[in-house]
Amino acid sequence: MHSIPGRRLIMGLFLIFLLLPIYWLVNMSFKTNAEIVSTMTLWPHTPTLQHYKRIFTDESWYSGYINSLEYVVLNTIISISVALPAAYAFSRYRFLGDKHLFFWLLSNRMAPAAVYALPFFNLYSAIGLFDTPWAVALAHCIFNVPLAVWILEGFVSGVPREIDETAFLDGYSFPRFFIKILVPLIASGIGVAAFFCFMFSWVELLLARTLTSVSAKPIAAIMTRTVSASGMDWGLLAAAGVLTIIPGALVIWFVRNYIASGFALGRV
């Protein structure tokens, strides 16, 4: 009654459709370049780890991952720490302009990155943050802070108001209540919000590439540079791609039930 006839077949085909391109990327990353260019093989006949070895030993490659991680972690910390009190305020109180503010936040989450690329470039050059992880971390706040506020607001609203009142009656000060009681109660919500901040900052390319040139260049930008160079190193590119999928693939099991809700800003 719930599902449709032939559902196993449909699901199976769809999953194959999803996995095949990823398999091809992984397959490529273990092949030698000679094998990639000369023959069409469904699995690596002479498997090699040379591409991975190159990435882990060549500084111009592995520094890209470190740079990316640096601004992603910075951004996640900033986003969550400013969003927490705001989420509490939106969930518990009414104040002047609250609805407008909430909408304004959402509109920033949805703003096209291309619109901000040039002004960000000017802004961060002017204040001397260009080509540092801080520039990208702050720039990514434009979509991650609103996201964190929206997601956390949903979780805070799930905490009964009686808990606040009891805590205040027991003589808790506001900061102490916030850290000792509220934060542990919505720990899973903070985890989900942090995951999505991490993810959206990790997958973004345009702003990260525009705001860096040499010393803070993210892995995504390093990869596009390799693509445009003549005589492409396909195996290396594939290996770099596989490595960028890993952070997502590692935590996917723990967030599998929250994926839809996170993309819908905690509203599903």
Binding site: M11, L15, L18, L19, L20, P21, I22, W24, L25, M28, M199, W202, V203, E204, L205, A220, M223, T224, V227, W234, L237, A238, G241, T244, I245, G248, A249, I252, W253, V255, R256, N257, I259, F263
Partner: peptide, 23 residues
């Protein structure tokens, strides 16, 4: 199924491009 479905959503956008370029 949930894990496999979620996989493409968590791949960096430029790598999505790379995957299809190679594929």
């Amino acid at each position: 199924c949930l894990v496999i479905l979620a996989l493409p959503l968590l791949i960096p956008w430029n790598v999505v491009g790379t995957i299809w370029q190679i594929f």
